[in-house]
Simulated assay, not measured.
Amino acid sequence: MFILAHLSDIHLAPLPRPNPSELLSKRGLGYINWLRKRRRVHRADMLARVVADLKARKPDHIAVTGDLVNLSLTSEFAPACAFLAGLGDANAVTVVPGNHDSYVRSAETLALQHWADYMRGDNNENFPFVRRRGPAAIVGLSTSLPTAPLSATGKLHGDQLARVADILAALGREKAFRVVLIHHPPTEGAHHFRRLRDADKMRDALKACGAELVLHGHHHESSLVWLPGPEHRIPVIGVPSASGSPDYHDDPGGYNLYEIDGEPGAWRCTLVSRGWHRDDRRITELRRQPLMG
């Protein structure tokens, strides 16, 4: 059995003190929001507990679907790289960026500069990239782009849409267990200012080419939506913020495990959600659900 772990929306705390010049942009509003609310929502102690619980499960690979930082301050990226190194080396951890990882245009390339080893395919390709780990063919996508103030939308920039369709189709012919990593979910119903702007085209690619799992973050909540595929429904799964406090309305900190077994053409996969239980005030198993097989 191969165990894939999935966590997201790290929002690493504490936030370094910004330089005044860094706040002459969208970051200024983000910093006010951090001081008023988000510094109490995203807690370093909660993140440490979630990571300790995850590592105790000894997964074979860890997927991180973005938002490691908060305002894309230059001083945030090195601590985030140290956080990733604490999870494992670049062969054991795969990352795709989120909207907070390219919060402003001046920081658009910082995530790739600092975390490149975690965001590169087996053949050194960038987005979309493919990593083979056990039975899983991990397909990494980037929806991370600078946006206007009060906007947190994403888009599959460049030629990712055309290329991911070809990649998924080729892997499908091999009957590989395809795991798509993306920050913004390609589902319907997202708030206009938080949506994936080309979600309909990504859904078309999934419907035509298929996948076994689509893993995302962004909404800070545990979710499971089924999308149509060419041969079977595709589970699209979100997780809470890994640093989320239990004292606010979003789902508190947690992560998912995917127990993958079987063989090409006859895969089995079970979803195991672990996280902070509001009543027991501890991290525990919250849900176990077969997804296929």
Rank of each mutant, 00 (worst) to 15 (best):
F2L: 02
L7P: 04
L7C: 01
L12R: 03
L15R: 03
E22D: 13
E22F: 01
G28A: 14
N33A: 12
R36F: 13
R36Q: 14
R39C: 05
R40P: 05
V51P: 14
V51K: 12
L54K: 07
K55W: 11
D60E: 14
D67I: 05
L68S: 00
L68C: 03
N70M: 02
L71A: 05
P79N: 04
A82R: 01
A85N: 04
G86T: 01
L87N: 03
A90Q: 04
V93N: 12
G98E: 07
D101F: 10
Y103I: 09
A107E: 10
E108I: 12
H114I: 08
D122L: 09
N126F: 12
N126P: 13
F129W: 11
V130S: 07
A136E: 09
A137I: 04
G140I: 05
G140L: 07
T143P: 12
T147N: 02
L150D: 03
S151G: 00
K155F: 14
L156Y: 06
L156W: 06
V164P: 10
V164A: 02
L171D: 12
G172C: 07
L181E: 13
I182T: 08
I182D: 13
H183A: 03
H183K: 02
P186V: 00
H191R: 10
H192I: 06
R194G: 02
K201C: 11
M202C: 05
R203K: 04
D204R: 03
K207V: 00
A208R: 01
G210K: 00
A211T: 01
L213Y: 12
L213K: 08
V214S: 08
H218E: 03
H218A: 01
H220C: 00
S222P: 07
P228C: 10
P228L: 08
I234V: 06
V239F: 04
S241L: 10
D247M: 14
D247R: 15
H249K: 15
D251R: 06
G254K: 02
Y255N: 04
Y255C: 04
I260W: 02
P264M: 02
G265S: 06
R268Y: 02
R268L: 05
T270P: 11
T270L: 09
L271H: 15
S273R: 15
G275M: 02
R278M: 08
D279P: 00
D279R: 11
D280P: 00
R287D: 14
P290Y: 01
M292H: 08
